[in-house]
């Protein structure tokens, strides 16, 4: 590991200045559960880590009529222990609740998960199906990027030199909305998704038709995938086994997994189909309350 400096700025501006100055030899530190492992594994040669946890905007956790704002450094447990988030954003909680074990969840942030941009990141697909945006601050000002556009490759994001993820905004779910996320792992905890699916549905007033659907897939491509074809296939469709099965098959076709130590192509494709079905049904159930 390259010996690095530790800095804990108190403002976004300060953080950006340090990051900009060091270029790729500095990185933000949220929970550190990816960063410290990677630094030790010599993935990065860092001169500085920039702790974001003393920056108020990065530690905010607000739920209001405008939606949910999650500071980039907020650890998972604060999300799943939050009564209002639990009741109003169960799909987000599904992801936060399964990242690592309890010790990891004390530290690991949703923001860190997103910025680490692993295809398997358990927080990312839920954010995509909730239509969340990443609030980015940088040397040339602030900008917002939809979460589905945030990851551009394994470990790669849209963030440019000096840019920092400040928080994530999740819009207030409309009525008739439900969402769920599930992954498949060979063990029951402490494992990385072999394949995973998040689904959100918005049902019409009758509760028997899909108004709109968002489906996102993890661990089956270079980034988490927003499965637009599968999502669109359900738009305006009646809720029945056939429409759900068809969407699951399309989702399977939209996935492009590889075979590696965590799973095979064949198995991953099968899992996407199975879990998509299960998640559509779970999201419907939640939408119906």
């Amino acid at each position: 590991m390259h010996p690095f400096n530790y800095v804990a700025p108190l403002t976004v501006k300060e953080a950006i200045d340090i990051l900009e100055k060091h270029g790729d030899r500095a990185r933000p530190l949220a929970g550190g559960t990816d960063l410290l492992v990677q630094a030790r594994g010599n993935k990065w040669d860092l001169d500085a880590v920039v702790d974001v946890k003393k920056i108020p905007e990065a530690m905010q956790l607000d739920v209001s009529n405008n939606g949910l704002t999650i500071g980039a450094g907020v650890p998972c447990y604060q999300i799943y222990d939050h009564e209002k988030i639990k009741s109003d954003y169960p799909g987000i909680v599904d992801g936060a609740f399964i990242i690592g074990g309890i010790q990891i969840q004390s530290r690991a942030a949703i923001g860190g998960n997103l910025c680490n941009a692993a295809p398997s990141g358990d927080a990312i697909c839920p954010l995509i199906v909730y239509g969340a945006t990443a609030n980015i601050a940088g040397p040339s000002g602030n900008r917002d990027v939809s979460v589905e556009d945030f990851c551009v490759g394994p470990g790669k994001t849209v963030l440019k030199n000096g840019e920092l993820l400040v928080s994530i905004s999740v819009p207030d779910p409309p009525s008739g909305f439900g969402a769920a996320y599930e992954r498949f792992i060979p063990r029951n905890e402490m494992d990385i998704a072999v394949a995973a699916v998040a689904v959100s549905v918005t049902l019409d007033n009758s509760g028997t038709n899909f108004e709109s659907v968002r489906i996102a897939l993890a661990s089956v491509g270079p980034t988490p995938i927003f499965a637009t074809k599968a999502s669109n296939s359900l738009q305006g469709k009646p809720i029945n086994e056939r429409s759900i099965s068809e969407a699951a098959t399309i989702a399977k076709d939209e996935s492009s997994p590889i075979s590696d130590m965590r799973g095979t192509i064949e198995h991953r494709k099968q899992l996407i189909e199975v879990i998509t079905k299960r998640m559509i049904n779970k999201a419907i159930k939640r939408a119906r309350g």
Binding site: P186, N188, E189, M190, D191, I192, D260, M261
Partner: peptide, 16 residues
């Protein structure tokens, strides 16, 4: 070996 960590070697946890 490519899975040379406890994460990917997958020994049973208490929940398994």
């Amino acid at each position: 070996m490519v899975n040379s960590s406890f994460l990917d070697y997958r020994m049973p946890t208490s929940l398994d």
